[in-house]
């Protein structure tokens, strides 16, 4: 009896301890991954039914709330710009000279045919604010030791009820993430790789998004170059900048 009680107590203690650990881990990841501002060039490889497309773009972002993206190639998308302010999104297309607001249910549409929706880019709440987390194990991925974190939503208005994250134990970079439905069904898997050190922080340069229910190769997102803590003029985050 006594031993059982001790066992239960220690398990409780362990869980609390690991919960704290998990939050700590996530905070460190947060510090590593996010920054006051950043400018990056990236290419997105979308594997379509017929062809794979590579779309390159340059993005200016301040915090999580403001971002401005200009598409550089291919020719058809060149000059298209996208502005996100809080939870609003505008797209400018040079061929039509129009600024169009994407709102409501349009946000659930796929972004340029990728496995990402506009909405996926819009949720800018801190992960520790909306999820309770705990460490549930460890695993080695590509020779890197990782903690496996299980995140369970603590607020109800969240897209994914549970998540699993594999965090590099040394670099505090997520190497894999899985998103689950309330029923526990796996919905999406993100794989992060090519972790480089930039301005003193570890940063994954390649991310692969995959909707696991759908066939296909998923969408690759590759950072070509990234700079942190730059001075970005405020006027970039205005609708007027879209037309320039």
């Amino acid at each position: 009896m006594k031993t059982i009680l001790i066992l239960i107590l220690s398990t409780c203690f362990l869980i609390t301890a690991s919960a704290q650990d998990a939050d700590n881990i996530l905070n460190r990841v947060e510090r590593n991954m996010s920054s006051d501002n950043r400018i990056f060039e990236s290419s997105m490889i979308i594997h379509g039914n017929r062809v794979s497309r590579i779309i390159t773009s340059r993005t200016y972002a301040v915090g999580d709330k403001q971002s401005f993206t200009e598409y550089l190639s291919p020719a058809r998308e060149q000059g298209t710009k996208m502005l996100k302010l809080e939870n609003q999104l505008w797209i400018y297309s040079p061929s039509t000279d129009r600024t169009i607001q994407i709102s409501g249910h349009m946000l659930r549409q796929s972004l340029m045919g990728s496995d990402l929706s506009y909405e996926d880019m819009m949720d800018d709440r801190k992960i520790t604010e909306i999820y309770d987390s705990k460490v549930v194990g460890t695993e080695t991925i590509d020779g890197r030791n990782t903690w496996i974190l299980e995140l369970t939503a603590k607020v109800s208005d969240v897209a994914y009820h549970t998540r699993k994250m594999w965090i590099d134990t040394e670099r505090y970079v997520p190497l894999r993430e899985e998103l689950f439905a309330k029923s526990g069904q796996l919905l999406k898997r993100t794989t992060l790789s090519e972790v480089n050190q930039i301005d003193g922080r570890w940063f994954p340069m390649k991310v692969v998004y995959k909707d696991v229910l759908k066939q296909g190769l998923g969408t690759e997102f590759i950072i070509i170059s990234v700079k942190f803590n730059q001075s970005i003029p405020d006027h970039i985050f205005t609708k007027a900048a879209l037309k320039q």
Partner: peptide, 16 residues
């Protein structure tokens, strides 16, 4: 009016 749709290749199609 402007039509926003997707191209045959999945890209963004915007046309007046």
């Amino acid at each position: 009016v402007t039509l926003i749709s997707s191209t045959m290749f999945g890209g963004m199609a915007i046309h007046n």
